[in-house]
Design a protein around this nucleic acid. Structure first.
Lengths: 231, 231
DNA sequence: GTCGGAGGTGTACGGCGTACACCTCTTCGC
DNA sequence: GCGAAGAGGTGTACGCCGTACACCTCCGAC
């Protein structure tokens, strides 16, 4: 199993191949299936061989984040700050959607890597290039939070409704009784017709809704020369 | 070790004692130290005894979240929606700050518990009581994201600066070279004097800054009778 | 007096990350 | 050509984890 084509020279591992194999495995089988043992097997190698290329599993996860962050498009030159940042963040979002495990791994890292710092630094630079003060830039970066990465923690991660229509009706009834306010959103009332409510949430819409709300708020503060302490 | 006071009847465990012991242990030793074995030892009992009170570790974590969520104050009656929601969310934040592990555990749960649903439902109800349409309420809840719980994923979780002043200077110099925009924020320029920048971030300030930005945005949309599709 | 069930125990299994000693090639100076 | 050095891969083992399963004990109900 470890030998390929018996006699052919094995192409040696390197950090990059390890990282990309880990990303591919997590994409395919989910992050919870990514163990050093499983990754080693994927690469036709014994688990301890990986430790010649990454110090430990933490560093492996850091490296995987770097791979994903590297997929984010560079900033568009010559675009106004607001749409430039919007585009960049939506590009980050696309990268994260390609790797569904990535947002949780990013959150779990205790320290940002250099690649992550590069990305954050360049986003900060985009606000500065748009004329934002250091003070305001600082606070809007915090306000963006994980949204710079293109994700937000969802608060309604409810289970998918059961397929059986009768069972589904029973669940809705129970929901409506205990949680009337959540139910009216989930059901999408008729007088709200034409809205995206009713047949599940459009995540992309929700993300852009919140992002634009924030960017509009940033713009307003910038225009009125907001400072964190009034003079 | 398992016997207390040799001959005295042991007071039997129950789900509530298990849950509160788990919360206390996580508070004291960190969530990464919370294993079924450690918790059992804490309670003077063998690990498998816990399984008579919680189905498995996942259910234990769910129960711990419920304990924390139960500490959130109920809504103030007779207060305008904006300040009522603001107060409620800041109360949630205080609860989460008492249990630093809680935000990460909340994020990690695949499905909300009934207690969590109760809280979300009541927040939704506060928007509705303030006259928000179902449509707008839906989207503002998404926009709030994890901020309903009083936390946001920080994007600058940098390591604490080294204590040695000389080493600190070297780190700053390296930071300034590679990441000039991050550096100017971290250092807090003199012409931004009076700001909170400069001696580390004031998390509470950042949280309220972003929360108020969002609430102001919500208010504006509400006043102009925003709908997710224009008629 | 017995019987059922709730609550606690003991053993064991398979999985995890990884320390450590070892082997096996490739490369390079001489 | 040859030996040393070191990079890369191996094998074994340890201590941790969650938890399945069989078992014991003791209380209250009948």
């Amino acid at each position: 199993m470890v030998q390929q084509a018996a006699g052919a020279r094995r192409v040696p591992l390197n950090r990059d191949r390890v990282l990309h194999a880990a990303v591919a495995l997590a994409d395919r089988a989910g992050i919870e299936s990514l163990s050093m043992r499983a990754l080693a097997q994927e690469l036709g190698v014994v688990p301890m061989a990986l430790y010649k290329h990454v110090a430990n599993k933490e560093e492996l996860l850091d490296g995987m984040v770097d791979v994903v962050v590297s997929e984010i498009d560079p900033p568009e030159a010559g675009t106004a700050w607001k749409s430039a940042i919007r585009q960049r963040i939506l590009s980050a979002r696309r990268a994260l959607l390609r790797h569904p495990w990535a947002s949780r791994v990013i959150e779990s890292r205790p320290h940002p890597t250099l690649v992550v710092f590069d990305y954050l630094n360049s986003v900060v630079g985009m606000f500065r290039a748009g004329g934002f003060s250091i003070d305001l830039t600082h606070h809007v970066m915090h306000a963006l939070g994980s949204r710079v990465w293109g994700f937000t923690q969802e608060v309604f991660p409810g289970p998918p409704p059961p397929a059986d229509p009768q069972q589904q009706a029973a669940v809705f009834e129970e929901l409506a009784r205990r949680y009337p306010y959540i139910a009216e959103i989930a059901l999408g009332e008729a007088h709200d017709n034409g809205s995206v409510v009713g047949q599940g949430c459009d995540d992309q819409f929700e993300f852009e809704f919140a992002l634009d709300l924030l960017l509009d708020g940033f713009e307003r503060l910038h225009q009125q020369a907001w400072r964190s302490t009034q003079p």
